[in-house]
């Protein structure tokens, strides 16, 4: 049967890597299926607010949706582990765990256990974000005390523990909030995306590394009944296109970010590294937060343990095999 998919997306398709894969996926599915899957993209808010995509797909109100699933941590506590993990894996390591480890199957179970009627397919990934845009530098861990900051995901819980006041404003409100001092700092995404949102005009310090989000993953959420309707060839195509989108998204971000960073310097933005001892403290708090979350939610625990299990052997390989950036 021919499928017609209305696909709401969580980020504007103008945002490279984060939103831009969605029209690409739609286009590929439509063309490569010879029209047996036709996909129309709906920009955020056109059909519904971006935060409601999971629910709408699960209810079958829309057949599919494309989004960063970490926004649903208020409904499905384990989901951030699939979306972005502080001090977590690098993008390619995450794909290793997702495709060849337990990742993909665990995600389906997590959704099912939380009562959602969706099938999730990894369909885009980007490299590290920046640690954000700040009006003042972070040079010691006390600088987080009283900081009003927009910080999504588990990283938000970490700096919340360090005394920051954390909100999760949507991208459209960030510039204004930063400009007027509603917030002192924000993270959003990688440089190529942050540039589009103009943060550099109002906050002069761009901090690195992106400890809170070494990878950021987007998913195609498909309603289960809709998935049941697909033929074998349609399924194969969906999986192939999404797997390709993962590569394309990563490539797009890696291609753009360096040039963008160079441009930032010309605009008088100071790129600063968060000192190592601060990072060490952030890491310690991150471990605490992850343990706490694992204690609160059984699915979180299972996924967390599976990732750690994979990392145990992976680290051996990673540490031996890869060059450190500074030695490249």
């Amino acid at each position: 049967e021919d499928l017609r998919w209305k696909m709401p997306i969580g980020f504007g398709s103008n945002l490279p890597g984060l939103g831009s894969p969605s029209p690409w996926v739609a286009d590929m599915l439509t063309k490569a299926s010879g029209g047996s899957i036709e996909v129309r993209v709906y920009e955020p808010g056109k059909l519904m607010p971006a935060f409601d995509i999971l629910q709408a797909v699960s209810d079958g109100k829309v057949p599919v949706g494309y989004t960063w699933i970490g926004y649903d941590q208020g409904k499905v506590p384990a989901v951030p582990l699939f979306a972005a993990v502080p001090f977590g894996m690098k993008p390619w390591a995450f794909t290793a765990w997702y495709y060849y480890g337990e990742g993909h199957d665990l995600l389906q179970e997590v959704y099912a256990n939380a009562g959602y009627n969706v099938r999730a397919q990894l369909c885009g990934i980007i490299g590290p974000e920046t640690a954000g845009w700040y009006k003042n530098e972070i040079s010691k861990v006390e600088d987080y005390q009283g900081l009003k900051i927009r910080f999504a995901g588990l990283g938000g819980k970490v700096i919340e523990k360090l005394g920051a006041s954390v909100s999760v404003l949507p991208s459209g409100d960030l510039f204004q909030a930063l400009e007027t001092g509603t917030i002192d700092a924000t993270e959003f995404s990688m440089p190529a995306i942050d540039k589009a949102l103009g943060f550099g005009q109002v906050a002069k310090f761009n901090l690195f590394p992106g400890w809170h989000q070494p990878f950021t993953a987007q998913y195609l959420l498909i309603n289960n009944a809709e998935w049941e309707k697909t033929t074998e060839s349609q399924r194969a195509l969906i999986e192939a296109v999404c797997t390709a989108a993962v590569t394309r998204a990563l490539a797009e971000g890696e291609f753009l970010n360096g040039a963008v960073l160079e441009g930032f310097e010309k605009d008088g933005i100071s790129a600063k590294q968060i000192p190592d001892e601060v990072l060490a403290q952030l890491k310690a708090v991150t471990d605490e937060v992850l343990e706490e979350e694992a204690a609160k939610n059984a699915d979180f625990k299972r996924v967390y343990e599976s990732q750690n299990e994979f990392l145990k052997s992976y680290r051996v390989w990673e540490e031996r095999a890869y060059l450190y950036p500074k030695l490249d």
């Binding site: 209305k6 129309r40 519904m48 409601d52 629910q55 209810d59 079958g60 109100k61 829309v62 409100d173």
Partner: peptide, 23 residues
Amino acid sequence: WFDYDSSLALLPERIWGNVESQA
């Protein structure tokens, strides 16, 4: 490309969008 589910059935999500607006 019209059906009830992806149009009027989204009413609560859309009303909610107006409720949860800080602006």
